[in-house]
Simulated scan of single mutants.
Amino acid sequence: MFDISQETPSDWWEVEALYDLCFAPGREALSSYRLRDGVDKVADLSLVARDADGTVGGAIRYWPIRIGDGTDAPRALLLGPVAVHPTHQGEGLGGLLIADSLDRARHLGWDRVMLVGDAPYYGRFGFERLDGVEMPPPTNPDRVLGLPLRDGAWDGITGQVLRDL
């Protein structure tokens, strides 16, 4: 049993330690991190899951982005990173964090979300490859995935993914 709640400033060290444990040492060199530099995460959607002992077993964060140039460029959420402590992997906690946070995003009025990840894993949540949406290099275009939170939310949206300051 896990208690899922919004990440607080006091959770920061535990969440960062979890990300360090779950991802390669060079994780912050990835192109998706350039989109996070100097941008506040979406606090309402950045969640932690604590087990019965109060230990962080999983975490998920979201960041605001824009697709295309100009102040009227469509906004979206960038999902990631999401991580589950190795002792809780295979229990469905990652899926629970993703499903819960996507539901919260819909209720908060967000229209679309994207990520860079494994299509077979994220496809079960409805994510599909985004053609014409360009992540900063080096990013494999086959791993650029999107999910409309409203019908047609990705229709006709193309261009470079940029930070939303």
Results as ranks from 00 to 15, higher is better:
Met1Ser: 09
Gln6His: 00
Gln6Trp: 00
Ser10Leu: 11
Ser10Val: 10
Asp11Gln: 09
Asp11Asn: 09
Trp12His: 15
Trp13Glu: 12
Trp13His: 14
Glu16Cys: 11
Glu16Ala: 14
Ala17Met: 07
Tyr19Cys: 14
Tyr19Pro: 09
Asp20Phe: 15
Ala24Phe: 14
Pro25Met: 12
Gly26Gln: 15
Arg27Gln: 10
Glu28Pro: 12
Ala29Lys: 13
Ser31Ala: 15
Ser31Pro: 15
Ser31His: 12
Ser32Pro: 13
Arg34Ala: 14
Leu35Asn: 14
Arg36Glu: 15
Asp37Phe: 02
Asp37Tyr: 01
Val39Leu: 11
Val42Trp: 11
Ala43Gln: 15
Asp44Asn: 13
Leu45Ala: 13
Leu45Lys: 15
Leu45Gln: 14
Ser46Arg: 13
Val48Leu: 03
Val48His: 06
Ala49Tyr: 03
Ala49Ile: 08
Ala52Arg: 05
Thr55Trp: 05
Val56His: 04
Gly58Ser: 04
Pro64Met: 01
Arg66Trp: 02
Arg66Leu: 03
Ile67Val: 12
Ala73Asn: 02
Pro74Gly: 02
Arg75Leu: 00
Ala76Ser: 11
Leu79Pro: 01
Gly80Asn: 04
Val84Ala: 02
Gln89Ala: 04
Gln89Ser: 04
Gly90Pro: 05
Gly92Tyr: 06
Gly94Gln: 03
Leu97Gly: 10
Ile98Cys: 07
Leu102Lys: 05
Asp103Pro: 08
Arg104Phe: 03
Arg104Cys: 05
Arg106Thr: 11
His107Arg: 14
Leu108Glu: 12
Leu108Asn: 11
Gly109Arg: 06
Arg112Gln: 08
Arg112Asp: 08
Arg112Lys: 10
Val113Lys: 03
Val113Asn: 03
Met114Tyr: 12
Met114His: 12
Met114Phe: 07
Leu115Lys: 10
Leu115Asp: 11
Leu115Cys: 10
Val116Ser: 09
Gly117Asp: 06
Gly117Val: 06
Ala119Cys: 10
Tyr121Asp: 08
Tyr121Gln: 07
Gly123Ile: 06
Arg124Cys: 14
Gly126Arg: 06
Gly126Met: 07
Phe127Gln: 06
Leu130Asn: 09
Asp131Lys: 07
Gly132Trp: 05
Gly132Val: 07
Val133His: 04
Val133Tyr: 08
Val133Ile: 08
Met135Gln: 12
Pro137Ala: 13
Pro138Lys: 05
Asp142Met: 06
Asp142Ser: 13
Val144Gln: 13
Leu145Trp: 04
Leu145Arg: 03
Gly146Met: 04
Leu147Pro: 07
Asp151Leu: 05
Asp151Gln: 06
Gly152Val: 00
Ala153Arg: 11
Ala153Thr: 05
Asp155Glu: 10
Thr158Cys: 01
Thr158Glu: 13
Thr158Phe: 01
Gly159Arg: 00
Gly159Ile: 00
Leu162Pro: 06
Leu162Lys: 14
Leu162Gly: 07
Arg163Gln: 13
Asp164His: 13
Asp164Trp: 09
Leu165Cys: 02
